[in-house]
Simulated scan of single mutants.
Amino acid sequence: MSRPPRILAIAGSDSSGGAGIQADIKTVTMLGGYAMTAITALTAQNSRGVRSVEVMSPEFVAAQMDACMEDIGVDAVKIGMLGSADIAEVVADRLEDLPCPIIFDPVMVATSGSVLADPATIEVFEWLMDLATLTTPNVPELEALGGSRGMAERNIAYLAKGGDADGPMVEDRLVRPGAGDTVWTEARIVTKHTHGTGCTLSSAIASHLARGLPLEEAVAESRKFVREALKNAPGFGFGNGPLGHQAVR
């Protein structure tokens, strides 16, 4: 029996289980990986929104990362909500020379609309994007990062997610410097249960890259996983409910 790929998820905890670390663990586990965590913040939230946030100290986040990397080892990293500029900096510092895929989901705003990154934290995103194998912004995040022109100037690979755009079709665009663009266009899955889609997608990509899949194939397979999880959402909550990770086969 071969060992499962080891995925370190660095993100905030979602008390309702739909997004953040909880979505990361579910995704990695369903895709046959071994999930480890460095929790950046604790949140009291549900499908209706974020009620309260307790941010961890940068030292404690670093200690969690060190404990995982020094003993278990890491085959891929997923970065989500960071909580503060100081945490973002210590995460970037710890990952500076790590020889494995890094997927950076530049979380700024929750599905419910709650702000999860202040301007100082967003400034540090530049460092993390330079380190990342792939950055996965949604429509408003891409705009905040300077749009497609700004991303092109940084000369980085990114996946422009189109789920937040209007219209019956969803377009996701994989942009890689010197390799051209790959575009996926599919009919929108009409549902309000979209809490944790970005977390799930980025964790899935990290999991597939850790197994050795090329980037384009890893993104394609991860998109399929998210779409199936959307279709199988359990219908929990009165707002933007969670996906159905456990129902994906």
Rank of each mutant, 00 (worst) to 15 (best):
S16K: 02
A11F: 07
L131T: 07
R48A: 08
W184M: 04
V115W: 01
D66L: 12
T135S: 15
V91F: 06
D66S: 12
V109D: 00
L134F: 14
E54D: 05
E221D: 12
A35I: 11
I103A: 02
S2L: 14
F60N: 09
A11D: 06
S222V: 04
L230M: 14
A38K: 02
A35H: 04
Y158M: 08
P242L: 14
A187I: 01
M108H: 01
A110S: 15
I25T: 04
P4Q: 04
D86L: 10
A19F: 07
S16T: 07
L201H: 00
A210Q: 07
R48D: 07
T136A: 09
T185W: 01
A206H: 06
R48G: 08
R227N: 11
E153M: 14
D66K: 11
P119Y: 13
T136G: 03
D14R: 06
E59R: 06
V55T: 12
P5K: 07
T27S: 12
E59Y: 08
R188A: 13
A85P: 11
R3F: 14
Q246I: 12
E186W: 03
H193F: 13
T43C: 10
G18W: 00
G147I: 06
S148G: 03
H245T: 08
A23R: 00
M65E: 04
D181T: 15
C68P: 00
M169C: 02
F236A: 13
A11H: 07
M56N: 07
C199F: 04
A160G: 00
L201M: 12
P140Y: 13
L159I: 07
Q246H: 15
S202V: 06
S15K: 04
